[in-house]
Each structure stands twice: as C-alpha cells, then as structure tokens.
C-alpha cells in the first residue's frame, strides 16, 4: 500500500535534495504527509463526518453483533449466539431473507436492464424530446410519497380504480383486498418498486450513451456489424463499462432499500409477514424491541449480502463485450 502511495507522491515535483531511496518507506511516507498537511486539513471536515456516520456504524454493528445489548445496560459478550439464534431459531428471519432476496433479485436486475434499455432507446431521439421522455421516466423516482397513489388505485373497496373497473365489467363480485391478500402483496410491491426505480443509474446510462464517439459506429458498420444488437454488444456496452459498473452499484443498493414502500402500501407488519424484509426485521428488533445486539447481527448480515452481491455483479460485468 505505502509503496503505491510513495509512487503517487513521487509524481508531484517538489523541491527536495533527498530521493525516495535515501530513507525507509515509513519515513518517506511521514515526510510526504508533513509536506502535504494542507490536504489533510481540507479533507478532514468531510472525512470525519463520513467516517462517523457511514463507516464506523458498520464496525459498531459488527462488534455489537456478538453481544447482548439493550441500549441501557452495558453490552455482554455472547459470541456467536445471536447468529445461531438468527439462523436456527428465528423462522421469521429466514422468511425475511427469502423475501429480501426475491425483492432484490427481481427489482435489481429488472430495474437495471430497464434503465439501460430505455436510455438506449431514447438515445437517438432529438434532444428536446429526449429531455421530456427522460423526465417522464425519472419523475416517479424523485416524487417522494406519490407511490401512495397505487394504494388508492388498488384500494380494497369499489372506489379503488382497479376494483371499480373489474366490478363494472362483471369480472368479480366482491372487491379484491389487494394489500391484505398475501398472494397480491409481493407482486404489487415489486411493481411499485420498479415504477420508482429508474433513478441515478438511468441518468448515468443516458449520459454515458451520449459520450460514445459516433465514429465508432461508422467504423463498426464498415467492419461488418449487421444490426443494432451486434452494435450494442460489440461497441456500445464495452464503451460504457464504467457507467455500467456505477449503475449496477446504484441499482443493487436501491434494490435492498425499499422497505419503506412496503410499509406504506401493505402496512407494518404486512399480512402473514408476506412482504417482511430483513430491513423490517432489523427495525423491529432495533427500534421496537430494543434487542440492539440482535439487531446489529442482522445489520451485519445485511451488509455482507449487499457488498457480496455488488462484488458478484462487478465480476459478471467485467465479462461484458468479451
């Protein structure tokens, strides 16, 4: 690590008589740190806040995951007991894991692919029209709690739009209790989540597509590319690999984070825990039951799942266009 650092540092020309090889790595690093103290001072305000509220919580969760802790008394070390309890003794946690993975496995990839496909399709539209279409697709993502309209449209009486139409057409006799019926809750929540999911990744793809050099496509046509699908695979995707990576991170993070939509639409807890996610389990034990140690163990598992799936997808994406 410090070797790399020393190299980066050496790039910067500075007035000095001694060269890198005159002293040990550690001393060199310390000297560089002293010479560039301004950088640390300028970085400190942001970085201290970032560490305190983003990075330290991960380690706090990890540490407290091995304890029994209720926020009032001091934590007591209990080793792996929390994890044993989670996986062997907590049926609802297993259910939550299943639901979370189903949610994430559907919404993550689908929203990712939709973001890309739509961005790709609208790329050739004239700029004014493209801006308008972008707004239509992106608006649900930034409109806050507007997704509550789905609850109005699917409400469980005849005044809900869907039930009203179905009753009117004579397809059903009594209104369907969409958000109280375990068969409908998950699919509906997934649809609503997808509706709100064209976000940062979508914008990144639109931007990425516009930065591709147009002459590449002409060169490709000369080299025998026959249709837009070949063009996509051989030119477009490889040229925006970095955007694809960034979009994947955004989509995955989003896919694990929409417990709020479920709460708003199906209530908390949802009927028979049919849409109960790890996030809900975490808030239940951390916020309502004050079993903080146990909640921290849940959080640790969630961190591992999120980072793990990101790393996995990055490996997959590195194969694009090869």
């Amino acid at each position: 690590m410090s070797d790399k650092v020393a190299q980066t540092a050496a790039v910067q020309p500075k007035k000095r008589a001694v060269s890198r090889k005159d002293m040990s790595k550690l001393r060199w690093t310390l000297k560089e740190m002293k010479n560039n103290w301004v950088a640390y001072v300028m970085l400190a305000p942001y970085y201290i806040i970032f560490l305190t509220f983003t990075i330290i919580p991960v380690f706090v969760s990890f540490g407290l995951g091995f304890t029994s802790f209720n926020m009032i008394e001091a934590p007591v070390w209990i080793g792996m007991d929390n994890y044993a309890r989670l996986f062997l003794d907590d049926d609802i946690f297993i259910l939550a894991c299943q639901n979370t993975l189903i949610f994430a496995a559907v919404t993550g990839p689908v929203s990712y692919i939709l973001s890309f496909v739509i961005a790709w399709f609208i790329n050739e539209l004239p700029p004014k029209l493209r801006a308008l279409v972008t707004l239509v697709f992106y608006a649900p993502n930034i409109s806050g709690s507007v997704y509550m309209i789905w609850q109005v449209a699917f409400s469980s009486d005849s005044y809900g739009w869907v039930n009203g139409q179905l009753l009117n057409l004579g397809l059903i006799d009594t209104p369907i209790l969409f958000f109280q019926d375990a068969n409908y809750v998950m699919p509906l929540c997934i649809v609503v989540a997808l509706w709100t999911s064209l976000g940062t990744a979508f914008l990144a793809f639109i931007a990425g597509l516009q930065t591709i050099d147009k002459s590449m496509f002409e060169a490709g046509a000369v080299d025998g590319i026959k249709n837009r699908w070949q063009e996509l695979w051989y030119i477009t995707l490889p040229s925006m690999k970095q955007q694809l990576m960034f979009g994947a991170v955004m989509s995955i993070t989003g896919a694990f984070g929409f417990g709020g939509i479920v709460d708003a639409l199906a209530g908390n807890p949802s009927v028979d825990y049919c849409a109960w996610t790890i996030m809900h389990h975490l808030n239940d034990y951390g916020g309502a039951r004050f079993e903080t140690g146990y909640a921290c163990a849940i959080a640790t598992i969630l961190f591992i799942i999120m980072i793990g799936s990101n790393k996995l997808v990055q490996i997959l994406l590195s194969k694009v266009g090869q």
Binding site: T54, P57, S61, I252, T253, M279, L282, A299, F303
Partner: peptide, 18 residues
C-alpha cells in the same frame, strides 16, 4: 466508493447509538 455499495438504512441502529 465502497460505501456506495451499502444502503444507509442498514446502519441506522448503529447510527442511533452514535
């Protein structure tokens, strides 16, 4: 960059302690 990979909600309990 790595911290973009996890959702802040997961850190909420630990954040509450902080």
């Amino acid at each position: 960059e790595t911290s973009l990979m996890f959702n802040a909600v997961a850190a909420s309990i630990a954040n509450f302690i902080i």
